[in-house]
């Protein structure tokens, strides 16, 4: 059985807008050979119960993430390219008069 890991399809992070007016939310990741396949796979995996969606896919290697702010960052060398899921971004509750 061949498992040529070098040929594994790249990993993509998926963001979905489930309804007009909502922002895209990170929902997870998937493997796909290219962007078109990533979008089609994202539709199959992450939108089976949502209508009128917008899907963003970004190759995981292009996501840059900040380091966790606590002392634990001393333990792991800083690495701002996330292979893993980026930490969920906190949005302010509602932005009023700016």
């Amino acid at each position: 059985m061949s498992t040529d890991i070098k040929n594994e399809w790249p990993l993509w992070e998926v963001f979905i807008r489930s309804k007009q007016g909502l922002d895209h939310k990170h929902v997870g990741s998937l493997h796909a050979a290219d962007a078109q396949m990533a979008i089609e796979n994202a539709r199959d995996v992450y939108t089976r119960r949502m209508e009128g969606v917008s899907i963003w896919v970004v190759e995981s290697k292009y996501i840059h993430a900040s380091n966790p702010s606590d002392a634990a960052s001393l333990y792991d060398p800083a690495n701002d390219k996330a292979y893993r899921h980026p930490t969920f971004y906190d949005l302010p509750d509602e932005v009023k008069h700016m």
Binding site: P68, S73, Y75, D76, R84, T87
Partner: peptide, 9 residues
């Protein structure tokens, strides 16, 4: 009950 995320130690 603080969640651990992937980049945390």
């Amino acid at each position: 009950e603080i969640r651990i995320e992937p980049k945390d130690w």
